[in-house]
Simulated assay, not measured.
Amino acid sequence: MEFTEIRRVPSNEVVVNNILNVHPASWNAPSGDFVKINVDGGWIGDTLKGGVGVVIRNTGGQFVGGLAGLICCDSALAAEAHSAIKGLALSANLGFRDVIVETDSKLLINGINGDFRNKVWSIMLLLEEIHRICGSMHEVRWSWVHRDLNWAAHEVAMIGVRAMELESWVSRPPLSLVQVLVSDGLPCPP
C-alpha cells in the first residue's frame, strides 16, 4: 500500500556528469526505459552488522523488485555501498539495463565519481564492485535524494536491522525474562 501512496509530480531532474540532481517534493518515477532503484543501508556500529534495502520501480511507479538483507560491514558508508551493489545486481538479474540508482548518501555518490575525501577511500573495494556491475549495464545514472524521500528503501533496510535485533534478542533475551523463565522452571538460553 505504501507504494501506491507515492504521488507523481513533474520531474525537475537534471543530468550533470551522469549524476541527477534531484530536488522534488515527492518521489518521481523514472522516464523512458529506465527503472529507478532506491537503495539504503543501515548500520549498528557495536555489532558491525547492518541491513540493506532495495526497492525497484518502473516508469509507472509500480514495484518490480526489491530485497532486504543482513550484511557485515564496518561503517554506515559501507552499508550504503552494499545496498547499491545489491540493488544493481538485482536489477541486472531482473534484466534491467537502464537504471537510475537513488540514494540519500552524498558520500557514496562522491566516491562513485572519484572523490575520496571524508574516508570514502575506506570503501574502495566496494566502489570497484559497483563500477564493475555498472560496466555490464547499458546506462546507470546516480541520483541523490533527501532522506525523507528515500523512505521506502530505508524501511526495507530497517527490516534487516530489526531482524538482526530480534535474532539477538532470541539468543540473548533480557535478564528479566530469563529470571521469569528460570523461576517458572522453563528452559532458556544461557
Rank of each mutant, 00 (worst) to 15 (best):
K36C: 04
K36L: 03
I37N: 07
N38T: 10
D40R: 00
D40V: 06
D40P: 00
G41Q: 03
G41K: 05
G42M: 11
G42P: 05
G42H: 03
W43E: 07
W43C: 09
I44T: 09
D46Y: 14
T47W: 12
T47S: 14
T47D: 02
T47V: 02
T47Y: 11
K49P: 07
G50T: 00
G50M: 00
G51S: 03
G51W: 01
V52Y: 11
G53F: 06
G53W: 06
G53A: 02
V54T: 13
V54D: 04
V55C: 14
V55P: 05
V55G: 06
I56N: 01
R57P: 05
R57D: 01
N58P: 08
N58T: 10
N58R: 01
G60Q: 13
G61F: 05
Q62K: 15
Q62M: 15
F63W: 15
G65T: 14
G66F: 09
G66C: 10
A68C: 15
A68E: 13
G69A: 11
G69F: 08
I71S: 10
C73S: 15
D74H: 13
D74T: 13
S75D: 13
A76V: 08
A76Q: 08
L77S: 03
L77D: 07
L77P: 06
A78D: 05
A78R: 04
A78E: 12
A79D: 03
E80R: 10
A81H: 10
A81S: 10
A81M: 05
A81W: 12
H82D: 00
H82R: 10
H82G: 01
S83D: 01
S83T: 10
A84T: 14
I85T: 02
K86L: 00
G87F: 12
L88P: 05
L88C: 01
A89H: 12
A92M: 07
N93Q: 15
N93L: 13
L94V: 12
L94H: 12
G95V: 00
G95D: 10
G95Y: 04
F96T: 00
F96W: 04
F96G: 02
R97S: 14
D98P: 04
D98G: 07
V99Y: 01
V99H: 01
V101H: 02
V101E: 00
E102G: 11
E102W: 07
E102Q: 11
T103H: 05
T103L: 01
D104A: 06
L107M: 12
L107N: 13
L108R: 10
I109V: 15
I109C: 01
I109P: 06
I109E: 01
N110D: 15
N110I: 00
G111Q: 00
G111F: 07
I112R: 05
N113Y: 06
G114E: 06
G114S: 07
G114P: 02
D115I: 14
F116H: 00
R117K: 14
R117H: 11
V120I: 09
W121M: 02
S122Y: 07
I123D: 06
L125H: 09
L125V: 04
L125A: 07
L126R: 07
L126K: 04
L126E: 04
L127Y: 02
L127G: 02
L127N: 05
